[in-house]
Design a protein around this nucleic acid. Structure first.
Lengths: 237, 237
DNA sequence: GTCTATATGGTGATAGAC
DNA sequence: GTCTATCACCATATAGAC
């Protein structure tokens, strides 16, 4: 109870300089320049991929540029040629992450059958947990730390997206197609249960000996989740 | 895809020395010694509390001994008098965490009414998310990083505990008191949905503007979870 | 037990040759 | 663009006076 200090992330950041935004430099030009630009982009991608894997395990502070450089098979100085600073790299990773992350939330719409829509949503999210576990973990980490670098970008679109889905769900409820649950809490439960399989993977593996990479286990998890969310555990009379 | 390197936590740890295990030095002795021993224990507690708050936000690497010392209102050198190293402190924090964490899992037993047992379990776990969010976050962080320091201690008791609960749930199902769900996946869902309110607190706050500290929101979340888990979202005919 | 140095080494970032 | 030095800084941990 001694520790409610609102401590900032701290540690130096030696000036962001002129913020070149190298990544989004994309103007139609000669083919030679274009080829070079594509090369640069591809190298940035490689580094971002490597960084994602490490950041998602050890966090921003637990990962050194040396490790990332080694994993991406470039020198540290070279890495810093493509990214002005560690923070810029980190933000680039987060930016790419959000693209993968916000997409599946778009799925269900009012004209769908709610039962099929929810079942499909659970499948998509569980596939995401299986295929993009690093993204899931980094997202989780960032949110747990207060999402200092992401929340500003995330809050508005997330809020709007949730509100639109809440409206769809409420519509289904009003039409008698769904039991009267609180839409927001339903959404949280859909997120929580599916992401759990990625974020708590080692715990799940410790308990069951299996992961989502096992196709049988994947289907078992999906079927269980769908049954649970749709019908609950109280026996139908 | 370039980064499946099984990188160890790295960073030096300058020798654990003789592993004094200062914490568990507890032998019946003269009252003066006993008083001193209690003083030491109390100071260790203070530091552990401060460390928990910081580790749970910024992780092991994102938190410096300086910050912890400041938060606990002791000098850094003094802190290192009570804990031989940063790692020993971290492990002490984890050890205390596990006590809080594994207790509520004990609750339900075969002779209870399953519906009431699950409802009660959800309440206890949600109260835990409200009252011990730092513990929840640090646990999550540690598991996400592969729980290198915790898994060894955790795996065996967790597995046994889960197996015993699986047996209870399976018993209920066999008695027709519960719909036939996979017990393990049910347990994961109970954990996931409740912990989500602690770990994704800032996201939930961003979307709803509220947290579990708001009593109305707490009851709303609990009621929603109970309804969802018990009866699902498919309207009863 | 608590303090003031200080040792030691990793880390992000830069300078400047090629 | 890529490399070899090298910087300044900060973090953990220790030594030794009081």
């Amino acid at each position: 109870m001694t520790n409610q200090t609102p401590v900032p992330p701290r540690r130096r950041l030696t000036a962001s300089k002129t913020a070149k935004i190298k990544g989004s430099a994309r103007e139609p030009s000669a083919s030679a320049v274009d080829r070079r630009s594509r090369m640069i982009e591809s190298k940035r991608e490689t580094v971002i991929d490597a960084a994602l894997g490490l950041f998602s395990r050890f966090g921003l502070y637990g990962t050194s540029l040396d490790q990332i450089a080694t994993a991406a098979d470039v020198s540290k100085t070279n890495l810093l040629y493509y990214f002005d600073s560690k923070e810029e790299l980190y933000v680039s990773v987060l930016r790419q992450l959000l693209e993968v992350w916000l997409q599946p939330l778009q799925t269900f719409a009012a004209d769908q059958d709610p039962i099929e829509a929810i079942k499909g949503y659970l499948r998509v999210k569980l596939e995401l947990s299986r295929d993009y576990p690093a993204e899931s973990r980094l997202f989780c980490m960032e949110v747990m730390q207060g999402a200092p670098l992401m929340l500003a970008e995330l809050e508005q679109p997330l809020r709007e997206l949730v509100e639109s889905k809440v409206a769809v769900i409420q519509g289904w409820i009003d039409a008698g197609k769904l039991a009267p649950v609180e839409p927001r809490h339903l959404i949280f439960s859909l997120w929580a249960t599916t992401q759990h399989y990625a974020d708590f993977r080692v715990q799940i593996e410790a308990v069951t000996g299996k992961t989502l990479d096992d196709p049988v286990f994947f289907e078992e998890a999906l079927t269980s989740l769908q049954a649970l969310i749709l019908d609950g555990i109280r026996p139908r009379s």
